[in-house]
């Protein structure tokens, strides 16, 4: 798997895929996409990067331990659910705000943060699994 072409293109491919995954994540509420799909795309991006350039460089690139990312995601999902509690709404009630930014309406909402949490959990867990297996393999 250590082909030169793959090793040369992998960083760019990975960056593109991660960018794409974030795009898929954010459009998910209105078009096909969402946290699960986006997370899987980003995780496979890291897996490809790991196969091409070795696990150590992926870990370097991710900066945080994958499971730390997953844990942060889980916490983000829980916190976005807790936000409705001070407003005396049930846990996980969706809250929306539409602040005008740069002339356009931007929908900010707790479901969006929840979806970002899902994304982070999937990215973290799946890439942790894939990287661990790749490490075994090397």
């Amino acid at each position: 798997m250590r082909s030169v072409i793959l090793r040369a293109t992998a960083p760019y491919l990975t960056a593109l895929m991660v960018l794409f995954s974030i795009f898929v994540l954010l459009r998910g509420h209105n078009e096909p996409g969402g946290g699960f799909i986006g997370g899987l795309i980003a995780a496979s991006a890291f897996a490809i990067y790991g196969i091409a350039c070795g696990v150590a460089s992926v870990r370097q690139a991710m900066h945080f331990h994958p499971l730390a990312i997953a844990g942060a995601g889980l916490m983000l999902a829980v916190l976005s659910g807790c936000l409705s509690i001070p407003l005396e709404r049930p846990f996980l009630t969706g809250l929306w705000a539409f602040p005008a930014v740069l002339g356009g309406d931007v929908g900010l909402s707790t479901p969006m943060f929840f979806d970002i949490g899902v994304y982070l959990v999937v990215v973290g867990s799946i890439s942790a699994i894939a990287l661990a297996l790749e490490e075994e393999d090397s």
Binding site: F36, L40, S125, L133
Partner: peptide, 19 residues
Amino acid sequence: LTAIVISFSFFAFLLVLAY
């Protein structure tokens, strides 16, 4: 949709366990 992701993570777990 969630079942697919969960069955994948379980599959990975069982695979590693078998290994």
